[in-house]
Amino acid sequence: MATWEDLAAFVRAEYAVAEDVDTETEYRIIEDGDDEIRVLVEYEDDRSQIVIIYRERLDGREDWVQVVSVIGRAADVDLQKLLWELGQVSVVCGAVIMGEHVLLRHSVPLLNLDINEFTDPLNFIAETADHLEEMFFRDDDH
Rank of each mutant, 00 (worst) to 15 (best):
A2Y: 09
T3N: 03
T3M: 04
D6M: 04
D6N: 09
A9F: 02
F10D: 10
A13Y: 04
A13E: 15
E14F: 12
Y15P: 14
Y15V: 11
A16C: 03
A16Y: 14
V17R: 11
V17S: 12
A18M: 04
E19I: 10
D20C: 01
D20V: 03
D20G: 05
V21M: 05
D22V: 05
T23G: 08
E24W: 00
E24P: 01
T25A: 01
Y27N: 09
E31F: 02
D32L: 00
D35A: 01
D35M: 03
D35S: 08
V39A: 03
L40E: 15
L40I: 00
V41K: 06
E42T: 10
Y43Q: 13
E44T: 09
D45M: 01
D46N: 11
S48L: 08
I50T: 09
I50G: 04
I50P: 04
V51G: 07
V51M: 12
I52C: 12
I53W: 02
Y54V: 06
Y54T: 13
D59S: 08
D59N: 13
R61T: 11
E62G: 00
D63E: 09
V65Q: 10
Q66C: 11
V67M: 08
V67P: 03
V70L: 10
V70F: 04
I71P: 07
I71L: 10
G72V: 02
R73L: 06
A74K: 02
A74W: 00
D78Y: 12
D78V: 00
Q80C: 06
E85R: 07
E85H: 09
L86M: 08
L86Y: 05
G87A: 07
V89H: 11
V91I: 14
C93W: 10
C93F: 15
V96R: 08
M98P: 02
M98F: 00
V102W: 13
L103K: 07
L103M: 06
L103S: 05
L103I: 09
L104D: 11
H106C: 01
S107D: 09
V108F: 02
L110K: 10
L110M: 00
L111W: 09
N112H: 09
L113E: 01
L113S: 02
D114A: 14
F118V: 09
T119E: 09
D120T: 13
L122D: 08
E127Q: 11
T128W: 08
A129H: 04
L132T: 06
E133M: 12
M135C: 01
F137R: 11
F137K: 09
R138S: 07
D139I: 14
D139C: 07
D140I: 03
D141M: 14
H142S: 10
H142A: 10
